[in-house]
Lab assay of single mutants.
Amino acid sequence: MPSETPQAEVGPTGCPHRSGPHSAKGSLEKGSPEDKEAKEPLWIRPDAPSRCTWQLGRPASESPHHHTAPAKSPKILPDILKKIGDTPMVRINKIGKKFGLKCELLAKCEFFNAGGSVKDRISLRMIEDAERDGTLKPGDTIIEPTSGNTGIGLALAAAVRGYRCIIVMPEKMSSEKVDVLRALGAEIVRTPTNARFDSPESHVGVAWRLKNEIPNSHILDQYRNASNPLAHYDTTADEILQQCDGKLDMLVASVGTGGTITGIARKLKEKCPGCRIIGVDPEGSILAEPEELNQTEQTTYEVEGIGYDFIPTVLDRTVVDKWFKSNDEEAFTFARMLIAQEGLLCGGSAGSTVAVAVKAAQELQEGQRCVVILPDSVRNYMTKFLSDRWMLQKGFLKEEDLTEKKPWWWHLRVQELGLSAPLTVLPTITCGHTIEILREKGFDQAPVVDEAGVILGMVTLGNMLSSLLAGKVQPSDQVGKVIYKQFKQIRLTDTLGRLSHILEMDHFALVV
């Protein structure tokens, strides 16, 4: 994948999101292997301009796509893939009243899908469409860049269908997702969380590099694949309309690839034109409109599966009536509230959605109805927002919020430890010299600072030695090549209790 991002070429006709291997024109390309080798690009942008032909009021008969309808489940399912879809609609009884809503608040519980998330729908649909058009064949390999849930859905379907599955996901995604993927037989590649989507090191860039190296491999490409919004247009939206008897006044959905909100909203605009569509985008993402909503100094966020630093091709923002931004604290607070007060075992993005819903639905009156999409299960986040310690460490809970008995030293300040200034190293000294210094002084790690004293990161003896043994660096290389740029900081005025929580999850903390 090139470091400079080429513009994806656009073909003359058809839909841009065809499933299957992508040609340089962004659509299915038939021909000899030699032709494909000559024409197939190194990668295709996940934010390529959409060429979708959908228009409100256009006859369904003019759609270029294969459409399906929700099917009634048999008493005995032939395999677990038949437990994807037909998820329950559940009334939220307490939270709406707590925040003064007059309307009825309903939750579409997508964590009841077989793999635990709304992404099971698009995973199965992308595979079925690729099999139907002859792209996927027995023994082929599926590769997908994902925040985890699409990966789980694909790995689940691949396990049943017999495909090899490789999932490329950023490091910030939970260990629970990784464990589930491994249990399903998927191979996992992790990428830096802070890598831009168009960087060769991003999950998108690495996935395309693997595709170019592995024979008979395919990126189904949830960011561009029409099967993504079509899955929701054909099934999720129809289920909502049936469950609500066609009567709903507002739908609120958090947005990642945009397939969920695009597919549902398009069908609702056709069948229930008075329904307002509300999009939820986390602070630090750029999906919301108008652009002024996205202006923030924050560039990272903890909530998973929603928000991006690019506009995915499948996201149709014209069908969203209003956007709201959400933050991590309210997302996790509301997710825990949904679990504790409503018994809905949902993930953090569901918290984002409901946090926005109780604001947006203030305009609705008694007798009206708001539906929220709860995308995934708490299963993926047992060591994250479900953990009091994690919430404390991230600053989303305060010590006084917890009532468990603490040891005698818990409320003492870090400054009472009488710490001395640490050994520091410059980023320009060599790895070999740094190892000598650390061994001589008896230290395992040291902060790396520039000549102005600005902290650049941390270097550890173990990481340097393993990097040297693996051949990633040489003793003569500058130590700046092996620094940890993500590390926890703590102030002298913070409590030892807070430091204790940090050290339970990290090997060190830097006192500043």
Score class of each variant (00 low, 15 high):
Pro2Val: 09
Pro2Phe: 14
Ser3Pro: 04
Thr5Asn: 15
Pro6Trp: 02
Ala8Tyr: 09
Glu9Ala: 13
Glu9Ser: 02
Cys15Trp: 09
Pro16Cys: 02
Ser19Asn: 05
Pro21Val: 02
His22Ala: 05
His22Pro: 02
Ala24Gly: 15
Ala24Trp: 02
Gly26Gln: 04
Gly31Asp: 13
Ser32Phe: 07
Ser32Gly: 06
Pro33Gln: 10
Glu34Cys: 04
Asp35Arg: 07
Lys36Ser: 02
Glu37Trp: 14
Lys39Phe: 06
Trp43Glu: 06
Trp43Asp: 02
Ile44Gln: 13
Arg45Ser: 09
Pro46Tyr: 02
Pro46Lys: 02
Pro59Phe: 02
Pro59Leu: 12
Ser61Arg: 14
Ser63Cys: 11
Thr68Phe: 12
Ala69Phe: 13
Pro70Val: 02
Lys72Trp: 02
Lys75Leu: 14
Lys75Cys: 15
Ile76Asn: 12
Leu77Thr: 02
Asp79Phe: 14
Leu81Trp: 02
Lys82Leu: 07
Lys82Glu: 15
Pro88Tyr: 04
Met89Gln: 02
Arg91Trp: 04
Ile92Arg: 02
Lys94Ile: 05
Ile95Phe: 09
Lys97Phe: 12
Lys98Met: 13
Phe99Tyr: 15
Lys102Ala: 11
Cys103Leu: 06
Glu104Ile: 07
Leu105Gly: 05
Ala107Phe: 05
Glu110Arg: 06
Glu110Val: 02
Ala114Cys: 02
Arg121Met: 02
Ile122Phe: 02
Ser123Trp: 09
Arg125Ala: 15
Ile127Leu: 09
Glu128Val: 13
Asp129Ser: 10
Asp129Gln: 11
Ala130Leu: 05
Ala130Val: 08
Glu131Met: 02
Arg132Phe: 08
Lys137Pro: 07
Pro138Cys: 12
Asp140Val: 10
Thr141Trp: 15
Gly148Tyr: 07
Gly148Met: 14
Ala155Phe: 10
Ala157Thr: 11
Arg164Val: 07
Ile166Val: 12
Val168Trp: 05
Met169Cys: 07
Lys172Trp: 02
Met173Arg: 05
Lys177Cys: 02
Val180Asn: 02
Leu181Pro: 02
Arg182Pro: 02
Ala183Phe: 02
Ala183Ile: 02
Glu187Ala: 08
Arg190Ala: 02
Thr193Cys: 07
Pro200His: 11
Glu201Gly: 13
Glu201Ile: 02
His203Cys: 06
Val204Ile: 02
Val206Leu: 10
Ala207Gln: 02
Ala207Trp: 04
Arg209Asp: 02
Arg209Ser: 10
Asn212Met: 10
Pro215Trp: 09
Pro215Val: 06
Asn216Gln: 09
His218Val: 15
Ile219Ala: 05
Leu220Asp: 02
Gln222Ser: 02
Gln222Trp: 02
Ser227Ile: 07
Tyr233Glu: 04
Tyr233Cys: 02
Thr235Gly: 11
Thr236Trp: 02
Ala237Ser: 06
Ala237Leu: 02
Gln243Ser: 05
Gln243Asp: 14
Asp245Arg: 02
Gly246Thr: 13
Lys247Ala: 12
Leu248Pro: 15
Ala253Ser: 07
Gly256Asp: 02
Thr260Leu: 02
Ile261Gln: 02
Ile261Asp: 11
Thr262Cys: 09
Gly263Tyr: 02
Ile264Pro: 05
Ile264Ser: 04
Ala265Asp: 02
Lys267Ser: 02
Glu270Asn: 06
Glu270Leu: 10
Lys271Thr: 12
Lys271Met: 09
Cys272Ile: 05
Cys272Asp: 15
Pro273Asp: 11
Arg276Ala: 13
